[in-house]
Amino acid sequence: MNTLSVKHLSIARKDGSPLLGPLTFNIEPGEIMTLMGVSGAGKSTVLNWLIGASQPMFEVNGEGWLGNTRIDTLATEERRIGILFQEDLLFPHFSVGDNLAYALPAATKGKAARRDAIETVLNSAGLKDFYHRDPATLSGGQRARVSLLRALIAEPQALLMDEPFSKLDTTLRQQFRQFVYDRVQARKIPTLLVTHDAEDIPAGGKVLELHAAEPSHA
């Protein structure tokens, strides 16, 4: 795995008033860096820029690198960066298995092989026999796990997480957090976590705190 680097990132609103930056940081393979800050400080904007979602409200400058590849000029689908949102966003018209199959790279060929790969992943997460289930019939914790499995089975080179634990209740949050951190660290994926909750910060992890820029007084 490669290091995820952000160089000289600065974000301004469309009217020209600066929102944040310049920001430079590196996330090593297997490291989970936490991005904190009050709402409106630009956390989501950083994530959206890294993933390549269009943001007509902002002017963004800077470079994003995965190892020796510059990624911020690539299309979202070419970046090989996975993302987890607050909601699980399982595709409701697919079964659980189809959700994973849509994420599994085409390099795994053949119906049987693909099915095997997905069953293995489901088994590893305690979701045996869930292949044909309707995502809407799963519990919140199960859905959260499937959404992480979906992100990981696509073999991402980096992972972004936008408050992925905030919708879960306290016990579930604890479990799912451990579930995520174990897998991310085992696969050595550089991970950027955006959160409000200081409890989400993994032991020994780096934290970057954003402060809201003062609105410019003309």
Partner: peptide, 27 residues
């Protein structure tokens, strides 16, 4: 405890040069 790296953000001058293309030609 987490090693905290606090980075105050101040206003900076924006350079319009080297602006990355966020939209690909396909779009």
């Amino acid at each position: 405890m987490a090693e905290t790296l606090r980075q105050p953000v101040s206003s900076i001058a924006l350079t319009p040069a080297n602006k990355p293309k966020t939209e690909t030609s396909k779009i």
